[in-house]
Simulated scan of single mutants.
Amino acid sequence: MTTALEPSLMLAAADVELMASGRPPTISVVGYTGGMMRVPPFGDLVIDLAGLQLSVDPIPILADHDSSLRGIIGHGVARVNAGRLLVQGTLIPGSETTQRIIEFNKSGFRFQASVGVAPGIIERVCAGETLHINNRTIQSPQTAFSLVRTGELREISLVALGADASTSVSIAASRNKGFGMTTDNITPTADEIRAEALAETERIAAIRKACGSRFTDIEATAIRDGWDGQRTELEVLRASRPVVQETPSRPEPATRMVLTAAILAHMGHESLAEKHLGADAAQRARDLRATNLMDLCKAAA
Results as ranks from 00 to 15, higher is better:
4 A>I: 14
6 E>L: 13
10 M>C: 15
11 L>T: 04
11 L>A: 06
12 A>G: 10
14 A>R: 14
16 V>G: 15
16 V>T: 15
17 E>S: 11
20 A>Y: 06
21 S>R: 14
21 S>N: 07
24 P>S: 09
27 I>S: 09
28 S>N: 15
30 V>M: 07
31 G>E: 06
32 Y>S: 00
36 M>C: 01
36 M>S: 14
37 M>R: 15
38 R>V: 13
40 P>R: 15
41 P>E: 06
41 P>D: 14
44 D>E: 15
45 L>E: 08
46 V>R: 06
48 D>E: 06
48 D>T: 08
49 L>C: 04
52 L>M: 01
52 L>P: 00
55 S>Y: 06
55 S>I: 08
56 V>L: 12
61 I>D: 01
65 H>V: 04
66 D>A: 06
66 D>E: 06
66 D>M: 06
67 S>F: 01
71 G>S: 00
72 I>W: 09
75 H>V: 02
76 G>H: 00
76 G>M: 06
79 R>E: 11
79 R>S: 08
85 L>C: 02
87 V>P: 12
90 T>C: 03
90 T>I: 05
93 P>C: 12
94 G>A: 12
95 S>D: 14
96 E>Q: 08
97 T>G: 09
99 Q>P: 08
101 I>K: 02
103 E>K: 14
104 F>D: 13
106 K>P: 11
106 K>H: 15
108 G>N: 15
108 G>K: 12
111 F>T: 14
112 Q>V: 00
114 S>C: 15
117 V>M: 13
117 V>P: 10
119 P>D: 01
119 P>V: 00
124 R>A: 09
124 R>D: 12
125 V>P: 10
127 A>D: 11
128 G>K: 14
130 T>G: 02
131 L>C: 06
132 H>K: 15
134 N>W: 02
135 N>T: 12
136 R>N: 11
140 S>Q: 03
146 S>I: 06
152 E>D: 10
153 L>A: 08
154 R>T: 14
156 I>Q: 10
157 S>D: 04
161 L>D: 13
163 A>N: 01
165 A>P: 12
172 A>S: 15
175 R>N: 14
176 N>K: 05
178 G>T: 07
179 F>G: 00
179 F>S: 13
181 M>Q: 09
181 M>R: 12
182 T>P: 09
193 I>N: 11
196 E>Y: 10
202 E>N: 10
204 I>Y: 00
204 I>S: 03
207 I>T: 02
211 C>N: 02
212 G>M: 01
213 S>E: 08
218 I>T: 00
220 A>P: 11
221 T>Y: 01
225 D>P: 05
225 D>E: 12
231 R>Q: 09
233 E>A: 05
234 L>V: 12
235 E>V: 11
238 R>L: 03
238 R>T: 07
240 S>F: 01
241 R>I: 08
242 P>D: 04
243 V>L: 04
244 V>S: 04
244 V>L: 02
246 E>G: 04
247 T>S: 05
249 S>F: 09
250 R>Q: 02
256 R>Y: 13
257 M>S: 13
264 L>P: 14
267 M>T: 12
267 M>K: 13
267 M>N: 10
272 L>V: 04
272 L>C: 03
274 E>S: 10
275 K>A: 11
279 A>L: 09
283 Q>W: 02
283 Q>G: 08
286 R>Y: 05
288 L>S: 13
289 R>G: 13
294 M>L: 03
296 L>C: 01
296 L>W: 07
297 C>I: 15
300 A>M: 03
